[in-house]
Design a protein around this nucleic acid. Structure first.
Lengths: 206, 206
DNA sequence: CCGCATTGTTACCATATTGTTACCATATTG
DNA sequence: CAATATGGTAACAATATGGTAACAATGCGG
């Protein structure tokens, strides 16, 4: 999970886990059923009483009855061990999306373009691209809503923080241009930062 | 599934399934990957372009890679055969609950025409139709009152925001025309945007 | 304080979109 | 049956939008 860019906390018993959940702002829980002390099902039950954090059970007990009771306690998903790393990763991503958690992973990937939000760095085809702060911010905003069309008003607000500014429209325009010059193979025929006339720009998924 | 009280329709090929989906109001799809003709993944892809019906893959191919590609095409869940009846039942229930909440906020469907209000996109027969902002707005207004006849005054008010405007009547007329040119198979014999002489226009349900 | 990178401003152009006008066919009205 | 109103259609004009470059202002490190 850490490799995927998630910020991970672990605990080795139900009680410890519950404490962790109480004291932190948790987006998703991977829960084993076999636990010392309170078992996973019970932990899930207790969590679901107060919070609505998505829970994925992760267990080697692959008896059907376990899956069933796991889902019945309100878990969002259940994955049997041994599991494939990518499958887990995908199911987690899906759940986070559904729960509208702005999955603040450390990176946004789209084709050859990779935005490392943790380090504020952008790579094109594994080569680091030097962006100025404004350029970077603009790209990040686009990246956070991958494939969504964002109007210049939104971009101005998100990237600059200004609500209104007469030069704002031009500012966005010019900086989109600057970004394209640095990112796009051919700035005049953009592949990444696409424009939807009359609506805005979007960072395409490729 | 029938025992659980669901209303079930089945089909034994991808094409047949897609047709079924097109012509009916489906809440959830259980999809096998191994299908004669188009395979399940492809079926899922096509569904996801226009509709947002939850899809659960159900397959005996329990290779991890299958699960992964299944989830990647946008399926909501994946269950490996042989599966336990209760597990399936629970996962279905869970998905339906989740989708009930936010379903159909984002789309207006009428036959082959689908208006994605969340993204301001229109699809005709799974192909994206490029509309200008005004055209889109006009269509959306019509779509919000599916099958209602809306006068040009109403359309003007709703789509443009103007109360009175001497050119308004012409404006509506011309833009209806423009819309038809883009949406209707035969713009001169409209099937979707129908006119009720003296009253206005309506977006037909088909 | 200087020089340079960054940011903001302005201007111009091409073109897509929107608005206007005119004309025709046909339904409705008197 | 003529007069009128309505809607379809196309062509044209006005406007808005986005691409582009060049230039001015600002801010920062040395």
């Amino acid at each position: 999970m850490r490799d995927d860019g998630y910020n991970v906390m672990t605990s080795s018993s139900g009680e410890e886990g519950l404490l962790l959940i109480k004291e932190n702002d948790i987006d998703l829980i991977l829960l084993d059923i076999n636990l010392p002390g309170i078992d996973g099902l019970e932990v899930c039950n207790r969590i679901k009483i107060t919070k609505h954090i998505p829970v994925i059970f992760l267990s080697c007990r692959d008896q059907d009855s376990d899956v069933i009771s796991g889902l019945e306690t309100g878990a969002e998903d259940y994955i049997r061990k041994p599991f494939n790393h990518r499958e887990l990763s995908l199911r987690v991503k899906k759940l986070l999306n559904r729960y509208q958690v702005q999955s603040d992973l450390g990176a946004i990937e789209t084709g050859f373009l990779s935005i490392r939000t943790d380090r504020e760095e952008v790579y094109f085809n594994s080569n680091k691209v030097m962006l100025t702060p404004v350029e970077y911010k603009l790209l990040e905003v686009l990246g956070e809503k991958l494939n969504w069309v964002l109007s210049w008003e939104v971009l101005l607000k998100e990237a600059w923080g200004y609500e209104e500014w007469d030069g704002g429209r031009e500012m966005v325009k010019v900086n989109i241009r600057r970004l394209r010059k640095k990112i796009e193979p051919n700035p005049s025929q953009p592949v990444y930062i696409l424009t939807e006339r009359g609506r805005g720009y979007k960072l395409a998924i490729i």
